[in-house]
Amino acid sequence: MTITLNGEKKQVPDNITVLGLLEHLKVRHQRVAVELNMEIVKKDVYGATPVKEGDSLEVVSFMAGGCAQARLEIAN
C-alpha cells in the first residue's frame, strides 16, 4: 500500500502497525516521536495502531540545532 511518510509517498507492506512500520524502516523507535494523520501516537500503543492505505505519517527525532535555522536545512 501507499502512505505518505515524512512528506513523501512510500510503498510499505499491507496490514502493518506503527511498530511494524518502524521495524520495517529499521528506525530506532526509542528516540523518535510519531504522528499519524496529525495526531501523536503514544509509544505504548505503537503495536496496536494500524497504518492504513493513504495515511500520512511523520517520524521525527532530535537533530543538531541551536537557535532558529532554515526549517528544512537538516530535515532530509
Binding site: S61, G65, I74, N76
Partner: peptide
C-alpha cells in the same frame, strides 16, 4: 539544545546526534 526534525528514512546508516 537540539532541534526536532524528520528522521532520515532513506539514509538509515546516517549517524544520530544522540
Amino acid at each position: 539544545t537540539v532541534s526536532v526534525r524528520r528522521v532520515n528514512i532513506i539514509d538509515k546508516g546516517k549517524e544520530n546526534l544522540l
